[in-house]
Design a binder for these strands. Sequence first.
DNA 1: CGGCACGTTGAGCGCGATCAACCTCCGTGG
DNA 2: CCACGGAGGTTGATCGCGCTCAACGTGCCG
Lengths: 251, 251
Amino acid sequence: MKNNGASTVRQYPCERCPLQNYPHFQQHEKDEVEFLSGFKMGELVADVGTTVLGEGRSSAHLFTVLSGWAFRYKTLEDGRRQILNYVLPGDLIGLQGSLMKEMQHSVEALSPLVMCMFQRDKLPALFQSYPTIAYDITWLASREEQMLDEILLSVGRRSALERAAYLFAFIYQRAKSVGMVKNNTLMVPLRQQHVADTLGLSIVHTNKTLKKLAAKGALRWLDRGCEVIDHQILLDIAKWQGLPPAPRPYI
Amino acid sequence: MKNNGASTVRQYPCERCPLQNYPHFQQHEKDEVEFLSGFKMGELVADVGTTVLGEGRSSAHLFTVLSGWAFRYKTLEDGRRQILNYVLPGDLIGLQGSLMKEMQHSVEALSPLVMCMFQRDKLPALFQSYPTIAYDITWLASREEQMLDEILLSVGRRSALERAAYLFAFIYQRAKSVGMVKNNTLMVPLRQQHVADTLGLSIVHTNKTLKKLAAKGALRWLDRGCEVIDHQILLDIAKWQGLPPAPRPYI
DNA sequence: CGGCACGTTGAGCGCGATCAACCTCCGTGG
DNA sequence: CCACGGAGGTTGATCGCGCTCAACGTGCCG
Protein backbone atom coordinates (compact mmCIF):
# COMPACT_ATOMS: atom_id res chain seq x y z
CA MET A 1 0.00 0.00 0.00
CA LYS A 2 2.94 2.30 -0.44
CA ASN A 3 2.23 5.42 -2.43
CA ASN A 4 5.69 6.62 -3.14
CA GLY A 5 7.36 3.49 -4.39
CA ALA A 6 7.45 4.81 -7.94
CA SER A 7 9.98 6.51 -10.15
CA THR A 8 10.16 7.45 -13.81
CA VAL A 9 12.78 6.64 -16.41
CA ARG A 10 12.91 6.20 -20.16
CA GLN A 11 14.68 3.09 -21.20
CA TYR A 12 12.73 1.50 -24.03
CA PRO A 13 12.04 3.48 -27.19
CA CYS A 14 8.78 2.34 -28.83
CA GLU A 15 10.67 0.84 -31.76
CA ARG A 16 12.17 -1.61 -29.31
CA CYS A 17 9.12 -2.08 -27.13
CA PRO A 18 9.64 -5.28 -25.13
CA LEU A 19 6.08 -6.33 -25.91
CA GLN A 20 7.05 -6.79 -29.55
CA ASN A 21 8.73 -10.04 -28.64
CA TYR A 22 5.54 -11.95 -27.89
CA PRO A 23 3.95 -13.66 -30.88
CA HIS A 24 0.51 -13.13 -29.35
CA PHE A 25 0.65 -9.42 -29.96
CA GLN A 26 -0.29 -7.69 -33.19
CA GLN A 27 2.47 -5.45 -34.45
CA HIS A 28 2.09 -1.78 -35.27
CA GLU A 29 2.72 0.03 -38.54
CA LYS A 30 5.69 2.39 -38.67
CA ASP A 31 3.61 5.56 -38.52
CA GLU A 32 1.70 4.23 -35.56
CA VAL A 33 4.92 3.53 -33.67
CA GLU A 34 6.02 7.06 -34.43
CA PHE A 35 2.82 8.51 -33.07
CA LEU A 36 2.96 6.31 -29.98
CA SER A 37 6.51 7.52 -29.38
CA GLY A 38 5.12 11.01 -29.00
CA PHE A 39 2.14 9.84 -26.99
CA LYS A 40 4.44 8.07 -24.56
CA MET A 41 5.75 10.26 -21.76
CA GLY A 42 8.22 7.83 -20.28
CA GLU A 43 8.27 4.80 -18.08
CA LEU A 44 7.04 4.44 -14.54
CA VAL A 45 8.62 1.87 -12.27
CA ALA A 46 6.71 0.79 -9.17
CA ASP A 47 7.73 -1.38 -6.23
CA VAL A 48 5.74 -4.24 -4.77
CA GLY A 49 2.80 -2.89 -2.81
CA THR A 50 2.70 0.49 -4.49
CA THR A 51 -0.76 1.86 -5.28
CA VAL A 52 -0.36 2.85 -8.91
CA LEU A 53 -3.86 4.25 -9.29
CA GLY A 54 -6.30 5.04 -6.52
CA GLU A 55 -10.09 4.90 -6.38
CA GLY A 56 -11.60 8.35 -6.34
CA ARG A 57 -8.53 9.99 -7.75
CA SER A 58 -8.55 11.38 -11.26
CA SER A 59 -5.71 9.79 -13.10
CA ALA A 60 -3.66 12.07 -15.31
CA HIS A 61 -2.21 9.10 -17.11
CA LEU A 62 -2.89 5.95 -18.96
CA PHE A 63 -0.50 3.02 -18.70
CA THR A 64 0.49 -0.10 -20.53
CA VAL A 65 2.29 -2.63 -18.37
CA LEU A 66 5.63 -3.62 -19.88
CA SER A 67 6.63 -6.12 -17.22
CA GLY A 68 5.46 -7.31 -13.83
CA TRP A 69 2.20 -8.13 -12.06
CA ALA A 70 -0.51 -5.95 -10.57
CA PHE A 71 -4.13 -6.22 -9.54
CA ARG A 72 -7.25 -4.08 -9.73
CA TYR A 73 -9.54 -3.97 -6.70
CA LYS A 74 -12.39 -2.20 -4.97
CA THR A 75 -13.31 -2.04 -1.29
CA LEU A 76 -16.50 -1.52 0.68
CA GLU A 77 -16.63 1.14 3.37
CA ASP A 78 -15.95 -1.37 6.13
CA GLY A 79 -12.80 -2.64 4.44
CA ARG A 80 -14.01 -5.80 2.70
CA ARG A 81 -11.93 -6.01 -0.46
CA GLN A 82 -12.68 -7.61 -3.81
CA ILE A 83 -9.91 -8.15 -6.32
CA LEU A 84 -11.46 -7.63 -9.73
CA ASN A 85 -8.74 -8.83 -12.05
CA TYR A 86 -5.01 -9.15 -12.47
CA VAL A 87 -2.90 -6.98 -14.71
CA LEU A 88 -0.17 -8.52 -16.85
CA PRO A 89 2.24 -7.23 -19.49
CA GLY A 90 0.41 -5.71 -22.42
CA ASP A 91 -2.60 -4.73 -20.35
CA LEU A 92 -3.86 -1.20 -20.27
CA ILE A 93 -4.66 0.49 -16.96
CA GLY A 94 -6.25 3.80 -16.13
CA LEU A 95 -8.57 3.94 -19.14
CA GLN A 96 -11.63 4.47 -16.95
CA GLY A 97 -9.90 7.38 -15.27
CA SER A 98 -9.04 8.83 -18.66
CA LEU A 99 -12.56 8.63 -20.02
CA MET A 100 -14.63 9.36 -16.91
CA LYS A 101 -14.05 11.93 -14.21
CA GLU A 102 -12.28 9.65 -11.79
CA MET A 103 -11.17 6.10 -11.16
CA GLN A 104 -13.70 3.79 -9.53
CA HIS A 105 -11.11 1.21 -8.55
CA SER A 106 -7.48 1.00 -7.41
CA VAL A 107 -4.46 -0.73 -8.88
CA GLU A 108 -1.60 -2.13 -6.80
CA ALA A 109 1.69 -3.69 -7.85
CA LEU A 110 2.29 -7.35 -6.98
CA SER A 111 5.87 -7.35 -8.21
CA PRO A 112 8.27 -4.72 -9.44
CA LEU A 113 6.27 -3.14 -12.24
CA VAL A 114 7.48 -1.31 -15.33
CA MET A 115 4.81 0.70 -17.10
CA CYS A 116 4.67 2.75 -20.23
CA MET A 117 3.02 6.07 -19.38
CA PHE A 118 0.76 8.00 -21.76
CA GLN A 119 -0.77 11.43 -21.56
CA ARG A 120 -4.45 11.34 -20.88
CA ASP A 121 -5.06 14.70 -22.61
CA LYS A 122 -3.83 13.36 -25.89
CA LEU A 123 -6.39 10.57 -26.05
CA PRO A 124 -8.88 12.58 -28.14
CA ALA A 125 -6.07 13.48 -30.53
CA LEU A 126 -5.21 9.80 -30.79
CA PHE A 127 -8.79 9.03 -31.75
CA GLN A 128 -8.64 11.79 -34.36
CA SER A 129 -5.39 10.78 -36.00
CA TYR A 130 -5.00 7.06 -35.45
CA PRO A 131 -8.35 5.30 -35.70
CA THR A 132 -6.63 1.92 -35.86
CA ILE A 133 -5.05 2.52 -32.46
CA ALA A 134 -8.36 3.83 -31.15
CA TYR A 135 -9.91 0.60 -32.35
CA ASP A 136 -7.24 -1.33 -30.46
CA ILE A 137 -8.00 0.55 -27.27
CA THR A 138 -11.68 -0.26 -27.63
CA TRP A 139 -10.73 -3.87 -28.27
CA LEU A 140 -8.73 -3.95 -25.06
CA ALA A 141 -11.60 -2.40 -23.09
CA SER A 142 -13.91 -5.01 -24.53
CA ARG A 143 -11.50 -7.80 -23.60
CA GLU A 144 -11.37 -6.57 -20.02
CA GLU A 145 -15.16 -6.68 -19.97
CA GLN A 146 -15.06 -10.22 -21.33
CA MET A 147 -12.64 -11.32 -18.60
CA LEU A 148 -14.86 -9.73 -15.96
CA ASP A 149 -17.84 -11.62 -17.33
CA GLU A 150 -15.99 -14.91 -16.82
CA ILE A 151 -14.79 -13.95 -13.36
CA LEU A 152 -18.28 -12.91 -12.30
CA LEU A 153 -19.69 -16.20 -13.55
CA SER A 154 -17.04 -17.94 -11.48
CA VAL A 155 -17.57 -16.00 -8.27
CA GLY A 156 -21.33 -16.18 -8.61
CA ARG A 157 -21.81 -19.80 -9.59
CA ARG A 158 -18.76 -21.98 -8.96
CA SER A 159 -17.88 -23.76 -5.70
CA ALA A 160 -14.78 -22.72 -3.77
CA LEU A 161 -12.64 -25.48 -5.29
CA GLU A 162 -13.85 -24.87 -8.85
CA ARG A 163 -13.36 -21.17 -8.40
CA ALA A 164 -9.79 -21.51 -7.19
CA ALA A 165 -9.00 -23.91 -10.03
CA TYR A 166 -10.48 -21.49 -12.53
CA LEU A 167 -8.46 -18.61 -11.13
CA PHE A 168 -5.14 -20.35 -11.52
CA ALA A 169 -5.99 -21.82 -14.90
CA PHE A 170 -6.98 -18.36 -16.08
CA ILE A 171 -3.83 -16.72 -14.76
CA TYR A 172 -1.73 -19.51 -16.22
CA GLN A 173 -3.12 -19.01 -19.71
CA ARG A 174 -2.69 -15.27 -19.64
CA ALA A 175 0.81 -15.49 -18.25
CA LYS A 176 1.76 -18.10 -20.82
CA SER A 177 0.89 -15.75 -23.67
CA VAL A 178 3.43 -13.25 -22.37
CA GLY A 179 6.21 -15.75 -21.91
CA MET A 180 6.01 -16.11 -18.15
CA VAL A 181 5.55 -19.87 -18.15
CA LYS A 182 8.81 -21.83 -17.99
CA ASN A 183 8.94 -25.66 -18.08
CA ASN A 184 5.14 -25.72 -18.02
CA THR A 185 5.39 -24.09 -14.64
CA LEU A 186 4.36 -20.64 -13.51
CA MET A 187 5.34 -18.68 -10.42
CA VAL A 188 2.46 -16.54 -9.19
CA PRO A 189 3.44 -13.77 -6.74
CA LEU A 190 0.27 -13.90 -4.63
CA ARG A 191 -0.39 -14.13 -0.90
CA GLN A 192 -3.29 -16.30 0.19
CA GLN A 193 -5.06 -13.09 1.17
CA HIS A 194 -5.03 -12.04 -2.49
CA VAL A 195 -6.50 -15.35 -3.53
CA ALA A 196 -9.18 -15.03 -0.86
CA ASP A 197 -10.11 -11.52 -1.97
CA THR A 198 -10.26 -12.66 -5.58
CA LEU A 199 -12.50 -15.63 -4.90
CA GLY A 200 -14.72 -13.93 -2.35
CA LEU A 201 -13.70 -16.40 0.36
CA SER A 202 -12.21 -16.13 3.85
CA ILE A 203 -8.46 -16.67 4.26
CA VAL A 204 -8.96 -19.78 6.34
CA HIS A 205 -11.16 -21.47 3.80
CA THR A 206 -8.88 -20.32 1.00
CA ASN A 207 -5.99 -22.02 2.76
CA LYS A 208 -7.92 -25.27 2.99
CA THR A 209 -9.02 -25.04 -0.63
CA LEU A 210 -5.47 -24.45 -1.83
CA LYS A 211 -4.34 -27.49 0.14
CA LYS A 212 -6.84 -29.55 -1.81
CA LEU A 213 -5.52 -28.22 -5.10
CA ALA A 214 -2.00 -28.98 -3.95
CA ALA A 215 -3.05 -32.51 -2.91
CA LYS A 216 -4.38 -33.06 -6.41
CA GLY A 217 -1.01 -32.06 -7.81
CA ALA A 218 -2.26 -28.94 -9.57
CA LEU A 219 -0.06 -26.50 -7.72
CA ARG A 220 2.43 -26.05 -4.93
CA TRP A 221 2.38 -23.34 -2.30
CA LEU A 222 5.73 -21.74 -1.59
CA ASP A 223 7.26 -19.19 0.72
CA ARG A 224 6.11 -16.18 -1.20
CA GLY A 225 3.48 -17.09 -3.71
CA CYS A 226 2.68 -20.33 -5.47
CA GLU A 227 3.65 -22.40 -8.43
CA VAL A 228 1.17 -23.71 -10.97
CA ILE A 229 2.32 -27.17 -12.01
CA ASP A 230 -0.50 -28.91 -13.82
CA HIS A 231 -2.70 -26.72 -15.94
CA GLN A 232 -4.86 -29.56 -17.20
CA ILE A 233 -5.99 -30.66 -13.74
CA LEU A 234 -7.09 -27.10 -13.07
CA LEU A 235 -9.11 -26.96 -16.28
CA ASP A 236 -10.79 -30.24 -15.36
CA ILE A 237 -11.70 -29.19 -11.85
CA ALA A 238 -13.03 -25.84 -13.06
CA LYS A 239 -14.89 -27.51 -15.95
CA TRP A 240 -13.50 -24.81 -18.16
CA GLN A 241 -12.25 -25.07 -21.73
CA GLY A 242 -9.87 -22.16 -21.51
CA LEU A 243 -9.48 -18.93 -23.40
CA PRO A 244 -9.94 -18.88 -27.16
CA PRO A 245 -6.44 -18.30 -28.54
CA ALA A 246 -6.50 -15.11 -30.55
CA PRO A 247 -4.01 -12.44 -31.54
CA ARG A 248 -4.45 -9.29 -29.53
CA PRO A 249 -3.42 -5.67 -29.90
CA TYR A 250 -1.48 -3.53 -27.46
CA ILE A 251 -0.50 0.08 -27.40
CA MET B 1 -35.62 -18.54 -24.61
CA LYS B 2 -37.39 -18.11 -27.89
CA ASN B 3 -35.16 -17.50 -30.84
CA ASN B 4 -37.64 -16.30 -33.37
CA GLY B 5 -39.53 -13.68 -31.43
CA ALA B 6 -37.95 -10.88 -33.42
CA SER B 7 -38.90 -8.72 -36.37
CA THR B 8 -37.45 -5.68 -38.08
CA VAL B 9 -39.03 -2.35 -38.87
CA ARG B 10 -37.89 1.23 -39.31
CA GLN B 11 -39.92 3.69 -37.40
CA TYR B 12 -37.60 6.22 -35.83
CA PRO B 13 -35.28 8.24 -38.02
CA CYS B 14 -32.10 9.20 -36.15
CA GLU B 15 -33.11 12.87 -36.11
CA ARG B 16 -36.01 11.87 -33.94
CA CYS B 17 -34.25 9.19 -31.92
CA PRO B 18 -36.34 8.57 -28.78
CA LEU B 19 -33.17 8.64 -26.69
CA GLN B 20 -32.80 12.35 -27.41
CA ASN B 21 -35.52 13.04 -24.88
CA TYR B 22 -33.50 12.12 -21.83
CA PRO B 23 -31.45 14.93 -20.33
CA HIS B 24 -28.82 12.44 -19.21
CA PHE B 25 -27.70 11.81 -22.76
CA GLN B 26 -25.20 13.90 -24.67
CA GLN B 27 -26.59 15.08 -27.98
CA HIS B 28 -24.90 14.51 -31.34
CA GLU B 29 -23.75 17.05 -33.91
CA LYS B 30 -25.67 17.22 -37.15
CA ASP B 31 -23.03 15.48 -39.23
CA GLU B 32 -22.80 12.70 -36.69
CA VAL B 33 -26.54 12.12 -36.84
CA GLU B 34 -26.27 11.96 -40.62
CA PHE B 35 -23.55 9.37 -40.44
CA LEU B 36 -25.42 7.34 -37.85
CA SER B 37 -28.45 7.39 -40.14
CA GLY B 38 -26.40 5.51 -42.69
CA PHE B 39 -24.82 3.25 -40.09
CA LYS B 40 -28.26 2.27 -38.83
CA MET B 41 -29.85 -0.60 -40.70
CA GLY B 42 -33.25 -0.47 -39.07
CA GLU B 43 -34.94 -1.47 -35.90
CA LEU B 44 -35.26 -4.89 -34.37
CA VAL B 45 -38.19 -5.67 -32.14
CA ALA B 46 -37.95 -8.65 -29.79
CA ASP B 47 -40.54 -10.30 -27.57
CA VAL B 48 -40.09 -11.24 -23.93
CA GLY B 49 -37.83 -14.27 -23.66
CA THR B 50 -36.17 -13.86 -27.04
CA THR B 51 -32.45 -14.55 -27.17
CA VAL B 52 -31.20 -11.49 -28.99
CA LEU B 53 -27.56 -12.56 -29.05
CA GLY B 54 -26.19 -16.00 -28.29
CA GLU B 55 -22.93 -17.13 -26.71
CA GLY B 56 -20.64 -18.71 -29.29
CA ARG B 57 -22.40 -17.13 -32.20
CA SER B 58 -20.70 -14.40 -34.19
CA SER B 59 -22.97 -11.43 -34.20
CA ALA B 60 -23.39 -9.63 -37.49
CA HIS B 61 -24.81 -6.63 -35.70
CA LEU B 62 -24.39 -4.12 -33.00
CA PHE B 63 -27.41 -2.73 -31.19
CA THR B 64 -28.48 0.19 -29.11
CA VAL B 65 -31.56 -0.43 -27.02
CA LEU B 66 -34.25 2.18 -27.69
CA SER B 67 -36.81 0.86 -25.24
CA GLY B 68 -37.35 -2.15 -23.00
CA TRP B 69 -35.33 -4.35 -20.67
CA ALA B 70 -32.88 -7.18 -21.34
CA PHE B 71 -30.11 -9.01 -19.52
CA ARG B 72 -26.67 -10.38 -20.36
CA TYR B 73 -25.73 -13.80 -18.97
CA LYS B 74 -23.35 -16.73 -19.15
CA THR B 75 -23.85 -20.36 -18.18
CA LEU B 76 -21.60 -23.20 -17.05
CA GLU B 77 -21.74 -26.52 -18.85
CA ASP B 78 -24.07 -28.03 -16.24
CA GLY B 79 -26.58 -25.21 -16.62
CA ARG B 80 -25.74 -22.96 -13.69
CA ARG B 81 -26.47 -19.46 -14.93
CA GLN B 82 -25.01 -16.11 -13.92
CA ILE B 83 -26.70 -12.90 -14.97
CA LEU B 84 -23.92 -10.41 -15.61
CA ASN B 85 -25.80 -7.17 -16.02
CA TYR B 86 -29.04 -5.66 -17.19
CA VAL B 87 -29.51 -3.75 -20.40
CA LEU B 88 -31.58 -0.57 -20.47
CA PRO B 89 -32.39 2.07 -23.09
CA GLY B 90 -29.25 3.72 -24.41
CA ASP B 91 -27.07 0.69 -23.73
CA LEU B 92 -25.01 -0.87 -26.46
CA ILE B 93 -25.06 -4.62 -26.98
CA GLY B 94 -23.04 -6.89 -29.22
CA LEU B 95 -19.85 -4.85 -29.14
CA GLN B 96 -17.78 -7.85 -28.02
CA GLY B 97 -19.14 -9.83 -30.93
CA SER B 98 -18.26 -7.01 -33.28
CA LEU B 99 -14.68 -6.69 -32.10
CA MET B 100 -13.78 -10.30 -31.34
CA LYS B 101 -14.58 -13.43 -33.28
CA GLU B 102 -17.67 -14.38 -31.36
CA MET B 103 -19.88 -13.47 -28.43
CA GLN B 104 -18.87 -14.92 -25.06
CA HIS B 105 -22.25 -14.25 -23.48
CA SER B 106 -25.93 -14.20 -24.37
CA VAL B 107 -28.56 -11.48 -24.23
CA GLU B 108 -32.24 -12.12 -23.58
CA ALA B 109 -35.21 -9.76 -23.61
CA LEU B 110 -37.07 -9.19 -20.33
CA SER B 111 -39.79 -7.10 -21.91
CA PRO B 112 -40.75 -6.17 -25.43
CA LEU B 113 -37.50 -4.71 -26.72
CA VAL B 114 -36.93 -2.17 -29.48
CA MET B 115 -33.36 -1.97 -30.71
CA CYS B 116 -31.52 0.17 -33.18
CA MET B 117 -29.46 -2.14 -35.38
CA PHE B 118 -26.04 -1.25 -36.80
CA GLN B 119 -23.82 -2.97 -39.30
CA ARG B 120 -20.82 -4.57 -37.71
CA ASP B 121 -18.72 -4.28 -40.90
CA LYS B 122 -18.96 -0.53 -40.83
CA LEU B 123 -17.41 -0.20 -37.40
CA PRO B 124 -13.87 0.35 -38.74
CA ALA B 125 -15.25 2.99 -41.11
CA LEU B 126 -16.92 4.67 -38.15
CA PHE B 127 -13.60 4.80 -36.34
CA GLN B 128 -12.01 6.30 -39.47
CA SER B 129 -14.57 9.00 -40.10
CA TYR B 130 -16.13 9.82 -36.77
CA PRO B 131 -13.55 9.71 -33.98
CA THR B 132 -15.93 11.43 -31.60
CA ILE B 133 -18.44 8.61 -31.99
CA ALA B 134 -15.63 6.08 -31.68
CA TYR B 135 -14.70 7.79 -28.44
CA ASP B 136 -18.29 7.46 -27.27
CA ILE B 137 -18.27 3.75 -28.02
CA THR B 138 -15.11 3.32 -25.99
CA TRP B 139 -16.71 5.34 -23.22
CA LEU B 140 -19.69 3.02 -23.20
CA ALA B 141 -17.45 -0.06 -23.11
CA SER B 142 -15.57 1.46 -20.21
CA ARG B 143 -18.82 2.19 -18.38
CA GLU B 144 -19.92 -1.40 -18.78
CA GLU B 145 -16.62 -2.46 -17.26
CA GLN B 146 -17.17 -0.07 -14.39
CA MET B 147 -20.62 -1.51 -13.72
CA LEU B 148 -19.19 -5.02 -13.76
CA ASP B 149 -16.56 -3.98 -11.24
CA GLU B 150 -19.29 -2.87 -8.85
CA ILE B 151 -21.36 -5.98 -9.42
CA LEU B 152 -18.37 -8.25 -8.86
CA LEU B 153 -17.57 -6.44 -5.62
CA SER B 154 -21.16 -7.00 -4.59
CA VAL B 155 -21.34 -10.70 -5.46
CA GLY B 156 -17.93 -11.38 -3.97
CA ARG B 157 -18.14 -9.45 -0.75
CA ARG B 158 -21.67 -8.46 0.23
CA SER B 159 -24.14 -10.59 2.22
CA ALA B 160 -27.31 -11.80 0.55
CA LEU B 161 -29.43 -8.97 1.92
CA GLU B 162 -26.88 -6.27 1.06
CA ARG B 163 -26.47 -7.75 -2.38
CA ALA B 164 -30.18 -7.75 -3.11
CA ALA B 165 -30.49 -4.18 -1.85
CA TYR B 166 -27.58 -3.11 -4.01
CA LEU B 167 -29.09 -4.76 -7.07
CA PHE B 168 -32.38 -2.93 -6.81
CA ALA B 169 -30.79 0.37 -5.87
CA PHE B 170 -28.52 0.05 -8.89
CA ILE B 171 -31.34 -0.82 -11.25
CA TYR B 172 -33.44 1.99 -9.81
CA GLN B 173 -30.79 4.61 -10.50
CA ARG B 174 -30.16 3.45 -14.02
CA ALA B 175 -33.84 3.23 -14.81
CA LYS B 176 -34.46 6.66 -13.36
CA SER B 177 -31.99 8.24 -15.76
CA VAL B 178 -34.03 6.97 -18.69
CA GLY B 179 -37.36 8.13 -17.34
CA MET B 180 -38.66 4.78 -16.16
CA VAL B 181 -39.28 5.87 -12.56
CA LYS B 182 -42.77 7.26 -11.96
CA ASN B 183 -43.90 8.61 -8.56
CA ASN B 184 -40.58 7.53 -7.08
CA THR B 185 -41.59 4.01 -7.94
CA LEU B 186 -40.14 1.59 -10.46
CA MET B 187 -41.62 -1.56 -11.94
CA VAL B 188 -38.92 -4.17 -12.53
CA PRO B 189 -39.93 -7.01 -14.88
CA LEU B 190 -37.92 -9.76 -13.16
CA ARG B 191 -38.81 -13.23 -11.93
CA GLN B 192 -37.22 -14.33 -8.67
CA GLN B 193 -35.12 -16.74 -10.71
CA HIS B 194 -33.51 -13.76 -12.45
CA VAL B 195 -32.73 -12.14 -9.12
CA ALA B 196 -31.24 -15.41 -7.85
CA ASP B 197 -29.05 -15.79 -10.94
CA THR B 198 -27.89 -12.21 -10.60
CA LEU B 199 -26.97 -12.47 -6.95
CA GLY B 200 -25.46 -15.94 -7.13
CA LEU B 201 -28.06 -17.31 -4.71
CA SER B 202 -30.60 -20.15 -4.77
CA ILE B 203 -34.23 -19.32 -5.56
CA VAL B 204 -35.38 -20.34 -2.12
CA HIS B 205 -32.97 -18.09 -0.33
CA THR B 206 -33.66 -15.30 -2.80
CA ASN B 207 -37.33 -15.55 -1.95
CA LYS B 208 -36.60 -15.24 1.76
CA THR B 209 -34.24 -12.34 1.18
CA LEU B 210 -36.79 -10.46 -0.91
CA LYS B 211 -39.35 -10.96 1.85
CA LYS B 212 -36.97 -9.21 4.22
CA LEU B 213 -36.55 -6.29 1.84
CA ALA B 214 -40.32 -6.11 1.47
CA ALA B 215 -40.74 -6.18 5.26
CA LYS B 216 -38.42 -3.21 5.52
CA GLY B 217 -40.61 -1.33 3.07
CA ALA B 218 -37.99 -1.11 0.34
CA LEU B 219 -39.98 -2.98 -2.30
CA ARG B 220 -43.10 -4.96 -3.03
CA TRP B 221 -43.25 -8.22 -4.91
CA LEU B 222 -46.04 -8.45 -7.45
CA ASP B 223 -47.54 -10.96 -9.84
CA ARG B 224 -44.97 -10.48 -12.53
CA GLY B 225 -41.96 -8.67 -11.24
CA CYS B 226 -41.51 -6.24 -8.42
CA GLU B 227 -41.86 -2.62 -7.51
CA VAL B 228 -39.09 -0.59 -5.96
CA ILE B 229 -40.69 1.80 -3.48
CA ASP B 230 -37.99 3.21 -1.24
CA HIS B 231 -34.66 3.82 -2.86
CA GLN B 232 -33.05 5.29 0.23
CA ILE B 233 -33.62 2.20 2.36
CA LEU B 234 -31.92 0.13 -0.31
CA LEU B 235 -28.91 2.45 -0.37
CA ASP B 236 -28.65 2.22 3.41
CA ILE B 237 -28.86 -1.56 3.53
CA ALA B 238 -26.31 -1.93 0.74
CA LYS B 239 -24.05 0.72 2.32
CA TRP B 240 -23.73 2.23 -1.09
CA GLN B 241 -23.57 5.88 -2.07
CA GLY B 242 -24.98 5.41 -5.54
CA LEU B 243 -23.74 6.16 -9.00
CA PRO B 244 -21.93 9.42 -9.67
CA PRO B 245 -24.37 11.43 -11.81
CA ALA B 246 -22.68 12.21 -15.09
CA PRO B 247 -23.79 12.93 -18.63
CA ARG B 248 -23.30 9.97 -20.91
CA PRO B 249 -23.07 9.40 -24.63
CA TYR B 250 -25.11 7.06 -26.76
CA ILE B 251 -25.03 6.08 -30.38
C1' DC C 1 -59.96 -29.92 -16.21
C1' DG C 2 -55.03 -30.86 -16.05
C1' DG C 3 -50.53 -29.02 -16.49
C1' DC C 4 -47.17 -25.72 -15.94
C1' DA C 5 -44.73 -21.61 -14.32
C1' DC C 6 -43.96 -19.12 -10.42
C1' DG C 7 -44.00 -18.15 -5.68
C1' DT C 8 -44.02 -19.65 -0.57
C1' DT C 9 -42.73 -22.03 3.55
C1' DG C 10 -40.57 -25.37 6.73
C1' DA C 11 -36.92 -28.84 7.96
C1' DG C 12 -32.39 -30.26 7.93
C1' DC C 13 -27.83 -30.20 6.09
C1' DG C 14 -23.34 -28.60 4.68
C1' DC C 15 -20.14 -25.25 2.76
C1' DG C 16 -17.66 -21.81 4.11
C1' DA C 17 -17.26 -18.16 8.02
C1' DT C 18 -15.48 -17.11 12.45
C1' DC C 19 -12.75 -17.84 16.49
C1' DA C 20 -8.66 -19.26 18.42
C1' DA C 21 -4.26 -21.20 18.80
C1' DC C 22 0.25 -21.91 17.21
C1' DC C 23 3.95 -22.08 13.73
C1' DT C 24 7.86 -20.22 10.90
C1' DC C 25 10.30 -16.71 8.88
C1' DC C 26 12.35 -12.30 8.86
C1' DG C 27 13.45 -7.59 9.84
C1' DT C 28 14.46 -4.44 13.61
C1' DG C 29 16.36 -2.64 17.68
C1' DG C 30 18.44 -3.35 22.08
C1' DC D 1 24.15 -11.48 19.89
C1' DC D 2 19.46 -12.30 21.15
C1' DA D 3 14.59 -10.36 22.06
C1' DC D 4 10.78 -8.97 20.04
C1' DG D 5 7.00 -8.17 16.92
C1' DG D 6 4.64 -8.52 12.76
C1' DA D 7 3.35 -10.82 8.44
C1' DG D 8 2.02 -14.93 6.51
C1' DG D 9 0.59 -19.64 6.81
C1' DT D 10 -1.68 -23.91 9.19
C1' DT D 11 -5.02 -26.38 11.78
C1' DG D 12 -9.02 -27.62 14.69
C1' DA D 13 -13.59 -26.45 16.77
C1' DT D 14 -17.81 -24.43 16.32
C1' DC D 15 -21.27 -21.43 14.21
C1' DG D 16 -24.48 -19.84 10.84
C1' DC D 17 -25.77 -18.32 6.20
C1' DG D 18 -27.47 -20.05 2.46
C1' DC D 19 -28.39 -24.66 -0.02
C1' DT D 20 -31.26 -28.67 -0.86
C1' DC D 21 -35.29 -31.25 -0.44
C1' DA D 22 -40.02 -31.41 -0.15
C1' DA D 23 -44.60 -30.00 -0.12
C1' DC D 24 -48.12 -26.91 -1.20
C1' DG D 25 -50.55 -22.65 -3.16
C1' DT D 26 -51.87 -19.72 -6.89
C1' DG D 27 -53.00 -18.09 -11.42
C1' DC D 28 -52.84 -18.85 -16.26
C1' DC D 29 -53.36 -21.28 -20.50
C1' DG D 30 -54.56 -25.02 -23.49
